[in-house]
């Protein structure tokens, strides 16, 4: 979270100082499961803010039917279907990792966090596959011809 620090906290071992100063900010972190989750949370978060800005800007067209229809028709082109899927991946990851943070912070689930991480990882995979199926389906139909994809739960 946002913490005001003018300087980096000094390393516990004074001998490590000289080498630590030369390393970049990223190299000071040890990338483990939790660290990776945090980095991805930031990346997807910033990405989603950018999407939110574009999304609200685009929806100005609600005041004009023709512009709105043209925009939605454009969102049905192949490249936007790929983007739609990428958006779902980012949202699903950010939501489930966020839920993990809330459960740990507000309900004190930190003793169970390893289990929680993998459980929510599984849930995320299901959301991406089931929720992303319309995008995958439409791209498949376009790539391999109409009727080539199974309808499943559509």
């Amino acid at each position: 979270m946002a913490v005001d620090t003018q300087d980096r906290p000094s390393a516990p071992a004074a001998t490590a100082d000289a080498t630590a100063e030369q390393e970049s900010r990223f190299q000071r972190y040890r990338i483990r499961t939790g660290m990776f989750a945090w980095m991805m949370h930031r990346l997807t978060g910033v990405g989603l803010v950018v999407y939110l800005i574009i999304h609200i800007w685009g929806l100005k067209s609600l005041s004009d039917p023709e512009t709105f229809n043209a925009l939605i028709a454009k969102y049905h082109s192949p490249i936007f279907k790929v983007g739609e899927f990428a958006l779902l991946v980012a949202v699903a990851y950010h939501a489930m990792n966020g839920l993990r943070i809330v459960l740990i912070d507000l309900l004190g689930w930190s003793p169970k966090q390893k289990k929680l991480f993998w459980t929510l990882g599984g849930v995320t995979a299901v959301i991406i596959l089931v929720g992303g199926w319309p995008s995958i389906y439409s791209l498949g139909e376009w790539l391999f011809g109409p009727g080539s994809m199974p309808t499943l739960f559509l």
Binding site: N69, A70, I72, A73, Y75, H76, S77, P78, K81, E84, P134, S135, Y137, S138, L139, E141, W142, L154
Partner: peptide, 20 residues
């Protein structure tokens, strides 16, 4: 997902100006 309310369908439109 909702078949009545969804304004985005599971269909790719490639022709310019074509509606889903």
């Amino acid at each position: 997902y909702d078949h009545q309310a969804a304004s985005v369908t599971h269909e790719v439109v490639t022709e310019k100006g074509e509606m889903p």
